[in-house]
Design a binder for these strands. Sequence first.
DNA 1: TTTAGCACTTGAACCTTTTGAGTGCTAAAG
DNA 2: CTTTAGCACTCAAAAGGTTCAAGTGCTAAA
Lengths: 353, 353
Amino acid sequence: MSAKVGDNMKLDERKKKILSSVVEDYIESAEPVGSKTLVEKYHLDYSSATIRNEMKLLEEEGYLEQPHVSAGRIPSTKGYRYYVDNLMKERKLSMVDIDYINNTINGFGDTDAIFEQIADVVSKVLATPTVITKNNTDTVENIKVVKISDKLLLIVLMSKNGTVKDCIAKLTDTVEDTVIDQMTSILNQDLTGTPFSELHLALNNVIKKDLEVFSGAMNDIVNSIRYELSKDLKKLNSGLESILENPDFSDIERVKNFVNMISTQEIIDAALQKSKEDKLSIVIGSENKEVLLNDYTIISLDIERDNKYLGKLSVIGPKRMNYAKTISTLKYIKEKFNTTLTINKDKDDSKGG
Amino acid sequence: MSAKVGDNMKLDERKKKILSSVVEDYIESAEPVGSKTLVEKYHLDYSSATIRNEMKLLEEEGYLEQPHVSAGRIPSTKGYRYYVDNLMKERKLSMVDIDYINNTINGFGDTDAIFEQIADVVSKVLATPTVITKNNTDTVENIKVVKISDKLLLIVLMSKNGTVKDCIAKLTDTVEDTVIDQMTSILNQDLTGTPFSELHLALNNVIKKDLEVFSGAMNDIVNSIRYELSKDLKKLNSGLESILENPDFSDIERVKNFVNMISTQEIIDAALQKSKEDKLSIVIGSENKEVLLNDYTIISLDIERDNKYLGKLSVIGPKRMNYAKTISTLKYIKEKFNTTLTINKDKDDSKGG
DNA sequence: TTTAGCACTTGAACCTTTTGAGTGCTAAAG
DNA sequence: CTTTAGCACTCAAAAGGTTCAAGTGCTAAA
């Protein structure tokens, strides 16, 4: 994440040019890039032998990798990182994309609608496999458990911002009223103050206490909360058709892994927690602690309205993604969204909320 | 669909046994079934040569197919159909499945919630690739178009049952107020009385008139309605992980086709329209007019509440699906849902609606 | 420092061969 | 007339071998 200065700065202009060409060609072609390709396609004024020597050095320093000895080079995580931090040029979006974005984002509606708008745009414009998840940083303020009948409980989660979520838990066995009180207090103890986006993880802790003390009843409650949350956190994986077009996913095993991964809430949660520091965060390949994510890159964007942090919009794709386009697009969308907000606010305040 | 008596009735007991064994083995193994397998695994008291002769006849009559001459047989559409209509035994669900269904379906909530409950159960229990779509038979009663600003229109769709849908259309060009009136009247003319589930198709007709008369403005409106509808008709394709596990989809091309197909609203609409006659309809392989669906089977179930038809729940999977389990499960879920409804109604009427 | 030249490596593509599951037919047995 | 053993035959899939081309690293000369 943080650039190691003494190391990275060693790259001279030629090495930079080579590295950036390798990254860009590989992003485009998905094939390892050889010295000859570089000379011809990127007009480097050296012979292929020279490029080979340089590439070997770049490999020794960890910027490039070689799938096997008679193949070209592909960027390593370190290579991508250096490219993103130092070499990449943000690029103008195409008129088509700009049009599409301008016509879709209008900033009307509640938080959900806004996320849907943005998510829709992102997945349409970035035809590369994309998954959008949103984070809800609103925190749990209070949990009420109301007994409806012997085996039915109504669980009400009240948030700090005033929204209310409720769900019905169906118990496998009846429980005493005192047990319900106990559970309610445990739930409040463990969950109050937790952002909704981290609730999944927090619920794990609650479950640990279940069988010791509550013989399964807590599990029933937690599951119904989970189910309710899942509706809400629903990732809009509309990029699925594009996933399958992408050469990275020509192998069915990788498709399986990817689909399973993005369906696993815990993995996504963990990945997003990591990237909280800045407004646009990029976690490339093995920078991610979660091993299953080591071949993927996550780029996240914070969405705000009226200076209030609404949540996070994340794009997950293969490490070999078009960084320049993805980042430029995300930035443009955010900017557009902010402008639209202001305009709407000025001219039609009643519609804004 | 309707059994041709003179033809189908020719099958004697032995042929029936053989056909049913082929279907069941193929459903289980996804491999063409040979005569030896049948003798050994299904204890048919004849030699493999006899079975071969019978299979040849079954093939000549169109119940079986042979991928190539040195392979076993697989059921044809006609074979599956005969199996489903005459040979298949509905089977008891496993306790696990029954438990899951019983614990999930509670009948609480509005139509959307009910569909989500049922869809969730169906896709979890029928681990075979499953897509659930719901149909909304509520019809359009009236459409209002309100001008918000020069290029923004608010479209309001009122339904016969009293629900209201609205969306905002962003125009590419400004239009005269008289044009808005014209468009409103066209919309009402063409769409009033249309069930929401068929709105997609009906909108096509509206679009045809667009460029002739309205120079694109109608298109903007239709697109925004489409978008609004898509939120609503959202198929819950939670069976995706299982799709990939299924041997039918070991070829990435088939996965692509399948995903594209189920993402195409028109195909699904067309398929579902066909199956309106009975309560549980089954359309197998080439029985479906849409060529893209010829390798798939669609099983649909009508969902009702208080004698009112709420819509249709459909399972789409490869022709080689577990018919017995799918059908038994759908029937059980429906029954369970109806019972739950009655109980809830009796004991807690205020919650039911 | 650069580069031409060359021996070397290796995955991919293309053939060929082998294997084995499964068939259809024939002729004999029941 | 029905059933079955036996056998020649077919063909997809697996296994093995060869060729091809892309790309490398190294050496020696410019």
